[in-house]
Design a protein around this nucleic acid. Structure first.
Lengths: 144, 144
DNA sequence: TCGTTAACTTGACTCACTCCAGAAAAGACG
DNA sequence: CGTCTTTTCTGGAGTGAGTCAAGTTAACGA
């Protein structure tokens, strides 16, 4: 787990000013992958005290824009953030409880950009979401 | 393009009651693939007159649940609906104008369910969204 | 034709997220 | 260190897709 110092370096590396809310948000997302905005606000407030939700939204947008965070929003879910960026991984989402887990790219490390007919689009990223049932919900369904 | 008669058969096949709003919604989605809810409401009202937005939401949910429509919601966009179901195709989304186009599954006709490590999840569907720039936006960017 | 039940109407409501204007803090420079 | 400029944060109001709930209407099987 990175320290506050690492976060500071990450911010400076992205030429972003170093502020307490930013450190706290980065830290919160590292600790709680796939957390939604509300949970992040909660965690940040636990560490810092009062922080406006607006600040968190701004920070999340700034960090997402800088590439330090990645925003994911599966259908039927609010926006979630994660800290794993740049490694082209994907997600499995549980249909019944909404749990999210990471999955490495099935077609290797390179972006899996192999659309059969791209309609003239210039494709730069492929996003994959696997839908299914998580282990907990599977056993729960069986035992019922 | 299917006729009202075809839509009626589709509804009965799904053991859903045949009502004017449902026919109109099915028809609207067939005519305007990837349309958002608001546009669908507009088209339906053009054909039927007054229809409550609630009715359209209900119909869309019923038809989606019955498998007659498919709901897609790319990040940063509102929910959109399409009538191509059951053929496991995916979508390209333009980052700058939001245009959506269909793309047949790159890994063949079978659902491309090949996650490298599924964390114990039982996966039943893989949803792929390709992000890029549409031809119009590409040429617009070049000429500027 | 009638009764049951699903579907539709109306209207209020929720909630994630955004916009705005002013206050505060960070970083640069002398 | 002190001041200035720029960026960020605060608080509150606002937006809009989508939902909830109660009552009415209409489809369909008997």
């Amino acid at each position: 787990m990175p320290t506050a110092f690492d976060f500071e370096r990450m911010l400076r590396g992205a030429s972003l000013r170093v502020t307490a809310p930013r450190i706290a948000v980065l830290s919160a997302v590292h600790e709680h992958p796939h957390a939604d905005t509300d949970s992040i606000i909660g965690v940040v407030r636990q560490n810092l005290g009062a922080v406006s939700h607006q600040a968190v939204y701004d920070v999340l947008r700034a960090l997402t824009g800088a590439g330090l965070l990645r925003r994911i929003e599966p259908q039927g879910s609010v926006a979630r953030y994660e800290a794993r960026v740049g490694d082209n991984h994907h997600h499995v989402v549980c249909r019944s409880c909404g749990a999210i887990a990471d999955v490495d790219c099935a077609t290797g490390a390179a972006p899996c950009l192999d659309a059969s007919d791209d309609h003239g689009f210039v494709i730069d990223e492929a996003e994959v979401i696997y839908w299914g049932t998580c282990p907990e919900c599977t056993t729960a369904a069986k035992s019922s």
